[in-house]
Simulated scan of single mutants.
Amino acid sequence: MVVSSCSPENSNIKTEIKIPVSVVTIKPQSISRFIETTGTVYSFKEASIKSELTGIYTLKRNPNTGRPFSLGDQVKAGQELIRIEDKEFQNTLQIEGKRLNLELADNNLKKQQSLYDKGGVTQTELKNSAISYVNAKYAFENSEIQLMKMSVRAPFDGVIVELPYHTDGVKIDQGQSLLKVMQYDKLLMDVKLPEKYLAEVTLNQRVQIANYNVAKDTIYGRISQISPVINADTRTFQSVLQIDNEKRLLRPGMFIKAFILSEKRDGTIVIPKETVISRQDGKVVFTVENGIATEKKITTGLESLDVIEVVSGLKVNDRLVITGFETLRNKSKVSIIQ
């Protein structure tokens, strides 16, 4: 652009105006395309435990804290958390008598087997001894099973998330809620995706998780289940995401965004989306060489939130205009600023 002065004194003075722009040298990069979805996560395992008998309630102490178990405490599978004592119930089980009866039946079976081997008893007498042993064994084991109901234990490694208050030493009834345990070092999320993505979603496909509570941390998951059926009403198919949550940064019930990695390309030309100018005859960008801006028609490929792949029209080491391109024309003279 050349500006000529109309003043007689300056009629021979010409000023060349160069448009200031910023540029970046194009280098091969990677670009990924994601399928974005949202949903609420839930625990990998959970169990609500109720009292299986009537008895005196005692909340056990957590050996790690030295105080009674409370909300948020981590527990191990099989760890005793609550005791329900009922002496009358315990006496009716007659567990010691059944233990002795089992020992007698076992000794008698061994004796009969020895006599049978020597021809001292018939096969019928041996089988009767075996039946007596089996019945005594089942009677003792059933009593042990009933006795175990007095001890409330964690069904798996997890965290106490519900613990209704009951006063120690007070009698509680059968069927009362005692606690709820969750395991959420892994989380699950149900998602419904449009049917157009069915061919792009596969088992064990990587997923990146975003939540405002964990903005500084990167959490990953994978596709663990895919339904092969399309819902005729919604035109979607159901999938299940399994999320690695070892640090327990996410909690069951949180609302999250999930980005399913659909496609990735390495060593390709990637430019900021904002530098692309869309026109009726296609998309263009500007490059600079020897102080001259040149308009380049491009063909694009994969897109992400901020960048876009250029399939044709640009090459590695081209100097792309990233600011100031709005006022450029083909062959405009430019000055490069930092």
Rank of each mutant, 00 (worst) to 15 (best):
residue 95 I to A: 06
residue 114 S to P: 03
residue 174 Q to A: 13
residue 86 D to I: 08
residue 169 G to D: 08
residue 315 K to S: 14
residue 117 D to V: 05
residue 307 V to Q: 06
residue 77 A to E: 10
residue 89 F to S: 03
residue 205 Q to D: 07
residue 224 S to W: 00
residue 309 E to Y: 01
residue 60 K to L: 15
residue 64 N to L: 13
residue 243 I to N: 00
residue 158 G to S: 03
residue 305 L to S: 15
residue 316 V to Q: 08
residue 157 D to F: 06
residue 67 R to E: 14
residue 88 E to T: 11
residue 93 L to Y: 04
residue 265 R to G: 07
residue 116 Y to T: 04
residue 78 G to R: 02
residue 179 L to E: 04
residue 153 R to M: 10
residue 157 D to T: 10
residue 227 S to P: 08
residue 179 L to W: 02
residue 186 K to P: 03
residue 161 V to Y: 00
residue 174 Q to V: 12
residue 154 A to M: 08
residue 102 L to Q: 11
residue 308 I to Y: 04
residue 303 E to K: 13
residue 202 T to S: 12
residue 299 T to C: 06
residue 143 S to K: 00
residue 103 E to T: 11
residue 85 E to V: 09
residue 256 I to W: 02
residue 266 D to K: 07
residue 8 P to I: 15
residue 230 I to P: 00
residue 55 G to R: 01
residue 338 Q to K: 15
residue 61 R to T: 15
residue 91 N to E: 12
residue 277 I to W: 03
residue 76 K to L: 11
residue 135 N to V: 07
residue 59 L to W: 05
residue 167 T to D: 14
residue 58 T to D: 12
residue 215 A to V: 14
residue 236 T to M: 11
residue 72 G to D: 03
residue 158 G to L: 04
residue 218 T to E: 13
residue 67 R to Q: 13
residue 323 T to V: 06
residue 19 I to Y: 07
residue 7 S to K: 09
residue 136 A to Y: 09
residue 265 R to K: 15
residue 50 K to T: 10
residue 249 L to A: 05
residue 254 M to V: 12
residue 14 K to S: 08
residue 209 I to Y: 00
residue 315 K to L: 12
residue 68 P to A: 00
residue 12 N to I: 10
residue 263 E to F: 04
residue 204 N to T: 10
residue 245 N to H: 07
residue 93 L to S: 05
residue 227 S to E: 02
residue 249 L to E: 04
residue 273 K to A: 14
residue 286 F to W: 03
residue 104 L to N: 13
residue 223 I to C: 04
residue 95 I to V: 10
residue 330 N to E: 03
residue 56 I to P: 00
residue 63 P to Y: 05
residue 276 V to M: 07
residue 203 L to S: 14
residue 278 S to K: 14
residue 141 E to W: 11
residue 4 S to D: 06
residue 335 S to D: 14
residue 254 M to E: 09
residue 38 T to K: 15
residue 193 L to F: 02
residue 107 N to E: 14
residue 257 K to L: 05
residue 204 N to S: 11
residue 308 I to F: 03
residue 21 V to Y: 00
residue 28 P to F: 05
residue 300 T to P: 00
residue 98 K to S: 06
residue 178 L to F: 01
residue 134 V to P: 01
residue 38 T to V: 11
residue 305 L to Y: 14
residue 148 M to S: 15
residue 24 V to I: 15
residue 36 E to S: 14
residue 131 I to M: 14
residue 176 Q to D: 08
residue 198 L to F: 11
residue 177 S to Y: 05
residue 232 A to F: 06
residue 313 G to F: 01
residue 252 P to I: 07
residue 77 A to F: 01
residue 261 L to S: 13
residue 12 N to C: 05
residue 125 E to M: 13
residue 129 S to G: 02
residue 334 V to A: 02
residue 214 V to S: 10
residue 297 K to Y: 12
residue 170 V to K: 08
residue 21 V to N: 06
residue 23 V to H: 03
residue 134 V to L: 14
residue 146 Q to F: 02
residue 154 A to W: 02
residue 11 S to E: 14
residue 309 E to K: 05
residue 4 S to V: 11
residue 307 V to A: 04
residue 223 I to H: 07
residue 200 E to A: 13
residue 42 Y to M: 07
residue 318 D to R: 09
residue 16 E to R: 08
residue 249 L to S: 05
residue 169 G to A: 03
residue 148 M to K: 15
residue 273 K to P: 00
residue 317 N to G: 12
residue 217 D to E: 15
residue 106 D to W: 08
residue 258 A to V: 02
residue 269 I to A: 03
